[in-house]
Design a protein around this nucleic acid. Structure first.
Lengths: 208, 208
DNA sequence: CGTCTCGTTGAGAGTTTTCAATGTAAGTGG
DNA sequence: CCACTTACATTGAAAACTCTCAACGAGACG
């Protein structure tokens, strides 16, 4: 069964959130009005306070989340308690531990809110039903994932064999908005560098 | 217009290659016999000798390639003429410069054959027509890309903040068959490490 | 037998991390 | 509004890691 929100408080904001989702879908595929109406019933609205967790390592990731508002990050925590950020998800992005979500395995990722967030959640069961009942959503996700693969390929190439400075500059070029909204220490973690190294790179670049 | 092979020599081998493709598709989605028949007309068979190129940096990547047989690699070449391998594609995999293929931009990747290959090629026009005419192919590619995202995420996490030894061990665990079929120097390039470092890691691991 | 490719080994150079100390800005409770 | 705490950023010095360069060895192939 699709999940419904019966919470009156959330009702108004869910409409807004859902319209943001619809808009994003319609950038990639065209939806019949009937389909658009049905779509809403698959999603559950959720608010997340700053630093609140959506998912913890070891749990089964039950939801794929669409970000209507705010920023989340996904990360692993190593033996020494250091975080390695794998992704920042901004408005209009989707986030989850994909492997856990799809294959019902234990999550290796943690996901929490960098800023207060408004999310639309869909469970794996509804995700599967959604793509079967509204086939154009297969197309939507196909295009979404296709684009995502392109950006991940780029990141992988940069990450694999670049100096710290090249990694930093590549991020400045490709994701400048990240620097306006995310603390430098988190950016360092995202780049796989120590905060000190990033600080020194920034200094070096300013001196030029 | 879909591309056809009229080369008699290739005819028999195309049937085999195409059956391999069909089998891979049917692992993910179910196809009507009529759809399966139509599917074939979208693909162009191609053989590639060892070290022969499928794509060179700077060209527009015209084809998405399904590997029926053999191994290819995609890589960038840096200023010093050193290769950085981004992917090995084995039997049953797809390979291309995705950004170039989808967005008709210049390729940043080279693709060549590590071993003699048999491929089935589909052009971007036919790829788009294919997903429109046989919608279940949207679903096939959605699932394919979904899985691909999972593995790329893993690689990115490893690549981002691990020691050389951790990267090596992670590859041994996740892709042992790679070590049976690929020279160590290429594996080093794939891991973003120098061949010397990989050699030393192997030695260190043997001594334990 | 010579050549070529691939892998190994050593030493030195360069880069990045770690550890520790200090500085700075923002938010909190009195 | 101030003192205090907390989070974030900078800086320096030493340690650790990986790369580069160079030499050498082993096996494949003509």
């Amino acid at each position: 069964m699709p999940v419904h929100s019966n919470t009156p408080l959330l009702h108004y904001s869910k409409i807004i959130m859902f319209n943001i989702l619809l808009q994003h879908i319609r950038e990639k595929v065209s939806l019949e009005p009937e389909e658009a109406g049905r779509l809403e019933t698959f999603f559950l609205p959720k608010e997340l306070a700053r630093k609140e967790f959506l998912l913890r390592e070891g749990e089964i990731c039950r939801y794929l989340a669409f970000v209507s508002n705010g920023i989340l990050k996904s990360f692993t925590r190593d033996e020494k308690g250091q975080d390695r950020i794998s992704l920042f998800a901004f408005e209009g992005w989707w986030i989850s531990d994909f492997n856990s979500f799809i294959n019902r395995e234990k999550a290796v990722l943690n996901i929490d809110a960098v800023e207060k967030c408004e999310l639309l959640l869909i469970s794996i069961e509804d995700y599967e039903r959604l793509t079967l009942e509204i086939p154009v959503m297969d197309r939507y996700f196909r295009i979404l994932y296709q684009n995502s693969l392109v950006t991940k390929d780029r990141r992988l190439m940069v990450s694999n064999k670049s100096t710290a400075e090249e990694k930093y500059l590549s991020l400045v070029r490709n994701n400048p908005e990240l620097f306006r909204r995310i603390p430098h220490s988190l950016i360092a973690s995202y780049l796989g560098l120590s905060p000190e190294t990033v600080s020194r790179i920034r200094k070096r670049l300013l001196l030029r």
